[in-house]
């Protein structure tokens, strides 16, 4: 059993909305998860973990005001920061030998799609102390994975820096066009969240749907 990425994205959108995001942010969350998954990175797992946290924790935190604090103790949402980067509200360093600190970010892998489309060539997203560096090129994702498990870090300090060393010839596996069976658990979590966006059916609504009040022997 497997899921198409298109179907996964549609479900992820509903799940993000069901977890409490606005529709606009839910679109970003779904797109980010599918973007990562299409490049062989565990975007769906990251989103799954993030939504579980977001639903419980998000309402406890103040709305982000637009100022990045490098020493924040409450982690920032990767989609709020990611969209601020892609919108241009947060400036990415573009000069040589400068870096940008993004502070403590929750589920930082989810930040990657936004940084990837905004950061100049030669700059990487550095996540935490485990030195996972992802050097980003235009139209391509190069990866230097010292510690692959860090891909699913719950939270870490994130920086955008010039790549300190040339990445080895690390080839990402051929990007999957489908979500394999092992993601069944994540799909179940998405379905649970998505279920919060569905209204219970009523006899009134059933009576007006296609086929209602029809004679089926015509």
């Amino acid at each position: 059993m497997s899921w198409s990425l298109g179907e996964t994205g549609a479900l992820a959108l509903k799940a993000a909305r069901g977890a409490g995001m606005t529709w606009g942010l839910a679109e970003e969350a779904s797109e980010a998860a599918v973007w990562l998954q299409a490049r062989g990175l565990p975007g769906v797992s990251a989103l799954c973990r993030y939504l579980s946290w977001y639903q419980l924790q998000n309402s406890l935190f103040p709305k982000w005001t637009g100022i990045l604090y490098e020493d924040n103790t409450i982690p920032y949402c990767p989609f709020i920061i990611g969209t601020a980067i892609s919108d241009g509200a947060i400036k990415i360093p573009t000069s040589v030998n400068t870096e940008g600190s993004l502070g403590l970010i929750r589920q930082p892998l989810l930040l990657l799609p936004f940084v990837s489309t905004s950061a100049p060539e030669g700059y990487g997203l550095y996540v935490g102390n485990f030195f996972i560096s992802v050097a980003l090129g235009k139209e391509k994702l190069l990866s230097h994975l010292d510690f692959p498990n860090a891909l699913l870090l719950d939270e870490a300090e994130c920086f955008i820096r010039p790549v300190s060393k040339a990445p080895p010839n690390f080839q990402l596996k051929g990007p999957p066009l489908r979500l394999p069976d092992c993601y069944g658990g994540c799909i179940n979590v998405f379905n649970t969240f998505a279920g919060k966006t569905y209204a219970p059916s009523t006899e009134q609504s059933r009576s007006t749907g296609a086929g209602a009040n029809s004679i089926d022997d015509d």
Partner: peptide, 18 residues
């Protein structure tokens, strides 16, 4: 002054702005 700033203050409009 711009959309980026506007969406920081009014994130609920992200869908329709897009």
């Amino acid at each position: 002054t711009n959309v980026a700033e506007f969406l920081l203050s009014f994130p609920e409009h992200r869908h329709i702005v897009r």
